[in-house]
Nucleic acid binder design. Structure first.
Length: 399
DNA sequence: AAGCAACCCAACCGCCGTTTC
DNA sequence: TGAAACGGCGGTTGGGTTGCT
């Protein structure tokens, strides 16, 4: 069914003249005082030879006083990429996370700029996965760099910075625009995995947690995204690491809200694999989903004593090994640095260790505002967060 | 300076879901 | 209850601009 107004013969099309803009603005300003009820009546009331739909579009995309013009900032670009990874081409939803930007503007920016950057970096702009050619390139041969350039590019807001080859097995996620960088270096003995990271909004609160949870999300989201069926009823943010080589989840961790008092053993089904996570107050737990073995337990702000507790927990759970590459520093508070270490099943197999270092120290006050996720976004995540569905429904019910 | 191609982005088109009658 | 009207959205188009030869 078409629009009634669009079938009119005497409507003008094409670019708007300054006079038309003025008429529409004048009408909309007066209508905002008295209230305007339907767009189809706007052309007649405003004295325009346009269809109502065209007026609406012109107002929303251009004439609205709160429309933000000008080039997109790196922060905005990062947000677009992050949210697009989760939502896909839902431009209106993405635009809601960019105050003053319209869906049309975001869409155009994506098509004209971001898309090309991703393709240039060997990423499929639709899925954010590595393109086949890039996968071959990155994984071909034992000395593949595991996409470090690619990840650096992503986490650096599109400014590709060469990732320095390192002899260690650590990779770093930095959410600081100034410090942005992401390094992946293969283990010395054998290549293990290229990890994908997914940050899932808290299923209970419907948004990424304030402060460093958001920073963490912003920092880790550029690592890319896959539909991931895992969710925790906790106050934290779930970060999943996915082994791209094996095509399975390698490990997952949940950064807990430090003030949370919840403690539970949750069972999750992730991509057909059962994933048990111990979401205790004091520990964020890595779970090797390939071997269904505990890998390590790190917690925001965990001290030596807490680490010992975590180790005991692991022992209780019959786990094999816990490797701490360095003492974790404080986490989840403003200006904090998060450090976590994971020993994956693959790493265990070849006696190598992967270290995850999440830093948000220099993120600054500008970060959080754009990283808030609303219920609709959460709902979108719920499409692949099986466990989150009930929580979303409950939230809606509560609202 | 002219011609051409690539790019950008405002606007249009068509579809879908919701509301109204 | 069903059709019409409407708002909203994502995909696409085409005119203007810019850069290159």
């Amino acid at each position: 069914m078409g629009h009634h107004c669009c079938s009119q013969q005497n409507v003008k099309r094409g670019l708007w003249s300054p006079e038309e803009d003025e008429r529409l603005v004048r009408y909309m300003v007066s209508a905002s005082e008295h209230g305007h009820n339907c767009w189809s009546s706007v052309p007649r009331l405003a004295g325009l030879q346009r269809c109502g739909k065209s007026c609406r579009l012109r107002w929303i995309n251009y004439l609205r006083p709160d429309v933000k013009r000008g080039a997109f900032s790196e922060e905005e670009e990062r947000t677009i990429i992050d949210v697009h990874r989760i939502l896909g081409n839902r431009w209106a939803q993405i635009a809601k996370h960019l105050p003053g930007r319209t869906d049309n503007e975001v869409k155009n920016f994506w098509n004209s700029c971001i898309k090309k950057k991703l393709i240039a970096q060997g990423l499929d702009p639709r899925t954010h996965n590595l393109l086949p050619a890039s996968t071959t390139l990155l994984h071909g041969g034992g000395g593949a760099n595991h996409g470090s350039d690619l990840a650096s590019f992503q986490s650096n807001g599109g400014n590709c910075a060469a990732a320095a080859p390192a002899a260690t097995t650590s990779f770093t996620i930095s959410s600081s625009p100034a410090k942005a960088g992401f390094e992946v270096a293969p283990p010395a003995m054998a290549p293990t995995s290229l990890y994908d990271a997914i940050v899932v909004p808290n299923p209970v609160t419907g948004m990424l947690m304030a402060n460093d949870h958001q920073h963490l999300a912003a920092a880790s989201a550029p690592l890319l995204g896959y539909p991931y069926t895992d969710a925790s009823i906790s106050d934290g943010v779930l970060l999943s690491l996915r082994d791209q080589n094996a095509g399975v989840h390698a490990s997952s961790m949940d950064f807990m809200n430090a003030s949370s008092s919840s403690s539970s053993m949750d069972q999750h089904v992730a991509g057909g694999m059962i994933n048990y996570n111990d979401f205790s107050t004091s520990a964020a737990v890595f779970m090797d989903e390939t071997t269904t073995m505990w890998a390590t337990a790190i917690e925001p702000g965990m001290g030596v004593a807490e680490m010992e507790v975590a180790q005991q927990q692991q022992q209780v759970l019959g786990q094999q090994e816990m490797v701490l590459a360095r003492p974790p520093t404080t986490l989840m508070n403003d200006g904090a640095t998060a450090t976590a270490t994971a020993t994956t099943g693959a790493a265990l197999a070849d006696k190598s260790v992967d270290t995850v270092d999440v830093s948000s120290a220099a993120y600054g006050a500008a970060g959080p505002s754009t990283a808030l996720f609303d219920l609709e976004l959460l709902d979108s995540c719920g499409m692949f967060c099986g466990g989150a569905g009930n929580a979303i429904d409950q939230l809606r019910w509560d609202c």
